[in-house]
Simulated assay, not measured.
Amino acid sequence: MFKSAATKIAHNTTLPALGGNKDLRPLQDLITLEKNVLTSLQKLSIDFTKASEALRAWGVGEGEDLGDILGASTTILAYWSGALGAYATREHTIRDHLKQIRTREEALDELKRRRKATLARADSAEKKLNKMGAEHKNLAQQTDVLNQLQAQIRGMDGEIMNEEAALGDFKRTSARALMGLKFGGLMEACETGCVVARVGRVAVAEISEAATTPGMARAIYLGHQRSQALVAEVEQRVSEIVFSALPPPSDPNNPGANPSQYGGYDAPPRLDYPQQDFAPQGGFTQPPLGGDDAGYSYTNLGGGISMQNTGMTGMTGMELGM
Rank of each mutant, 00 (worst) to 15 (best):
G200T: 05
N254F: 03
M179I: 09
S239W: 06
K182V: 12
R198Q: 12
I207M: 03
L230M: 04
G184A: 09
R172L: 15
R218N: 07
V202Q: 09
L178D: 06
E188A: 12
K171V: 13
R226M: 02
R201E: 12
S260M: 14
A177R: 10
T212N: 09
L230W: 01
C190W: 11
L178Q: 11
N258F: 12
Q228I: 14
L178K: 08
D169A: 14
K171M: 10
F170C: 05
M187S: 13
G193M: 03
S239A: 12
A205C: 08
K182G: 04
G168Q: 10
Q236D: 12
F170W: 03
G185P: 02
C190L: 15
M216V: 11
A203M: 14
G168H: 06
S174N: 07
E209T: 14
F243A: 07
A175K: 12
V238F: 02
L181F: 01
L167A: 08
V204T: 12
Q261A: 07
A177G: 09
A189S: 15
R218C: 04
P255F: 03
S174G: 09
E206L: 11
A232Y: 02
A211K: 08
R226W: 04
T212F: 02
A232R: 09
K182W: 09
A211D: 13
T192E: 02
R226Q: 08
A229Q: 10
G180L: 11
T192C: 13
L230Q: 00
E209Y: 05
P259V: 04
E188G: 10
G215R: 03
T213R: 00
S260N: 11
F183M: 15
P248Y: 07
G200I: 05
T213K: 03
N254A: 09
G215W: 01
E191Q: 15
Y221H: 06
E163Y: 04
Q236C: 10
S208P: 07
A219C: 03
V199F: 03
L181S: 02
E191K: 10
A210T: 10
Y221N: 04
A229R: 05
R237Y: 02
L181E: 04
A232L: 08
L230R: 00
A166P: 00
G215A: 01
R176N: 15
Y221M: 05
N253G: 10
S260G: 14
S174D: 06
G193K: 04
G184S: 05
A210M: 08
Q261L: 13
S260Q: 14
P247H: 02
L167G: 05
A197K: 12
S174Q: 09
N162K: 11
P249C: 08
K171I: 14
G180P: 09
S244L: 15
I241S: 04
L167Y: 01
E206D: 09
V199D: 04
A211N: 10
V199N: 00
L186E: 14
E163L: 13
G184Q: 03
A166W: 01
A229K: 05
F243Y: 11
V242T: 14
T213N: 01
L167S: 08
V202R: 11
Q228G: 15
E206P: 00
E163S: 13
D169G: 11
D251A: 00
Q228V: 14
P214W: 00
